[in-house]
Amino acid sequence: MSYFLQLLVSGIVVGSIYALAALGFVLIYKASRVINFAHGHFIAIGAFTAYALAVDFGVNIWIAALVVLVFTAIVAYFTERVFLKPLVGQPIISVIMVTIGLASVFGGLIHLTPYGSGNFSLPAFLPEGGVTFWGISVSYPQLLAVLFTAVFLVAFAWFFQRSTIGIAMRAVADDQMASMSLGVSVEKVFALAWAAAGITAAASGLIVGAISGLNLEGLVGIGLKVFPVVILGGLDSIPGAVVGGIIIGILENLAAGYLDAYIPGGGTGDVFPFLVLLLVLWFKPHGLFGTEEIERV
């Protein structure tokens, strides 16, 4: 039983990373109907910028984290302005492909720095050890990860419910024409959605850095894991991203914990989310909270 609970807890920790990453992904999708294949690279940009600041330049880790959130938001903002804006109104495949192309460009740029290959770990900024209850041990970084995610979710919830920009973003997601006629700048909202997504991506990159080591492939891999999360939760649902993220995180850990022994080579956790994805697509294509599309000729 304690084995199960242990898997559950680490699943929730991993799931909260997925939830944060998926949150940004859903923000972009809701606002501009763009599927962002470069999301994993935003996570990587955030994480490695933090590493560069904290280790190579000796900046205090908390200040570095703040700088990184702003920096990644700016990168995401200009990505939208420069590369996505010219493609407004183009077919879906063009938009998807441009994000795939951008992923490749970002990957190349990261490879041009020393962080492209190898493993890195952020300096430890929390005391060693952790808390143990009912035989389950949770380290401080893991606790912080969940806490950090919760803080972010509350902040974003406040932002969307109360702030003018947040309400404008929701309006655009709901009906672009109507919000345009009410004086909302749809263009600006698109760019802001990307900036917000950049912030969440950087935050999930920072949390990965706090819990475990950083390497490019792993961080980009989170960008892929976002797909099962958003399909399970519903592509255009922010609560769905959070719930889906945590469910996928738990399922992944349980699969790895219980099935790896029976499979030559193990690594069940890497593929299980995608099996879930296919099952969801077959039986409940719009996920737990997604809106069903109604089409007319």
Partner: peptide, 17 residues
């Protein structure tokens, strides 16, 4: 190994735009 994905990605993006 850095320049190749860079050129590949740029080719895609520039063609699409």
């Amino acid at each position: 190994s850095a320049v190749r994905p860079l050129a590949f990605g740029l080719a895609i993006v520039l063609f699409l735009i």
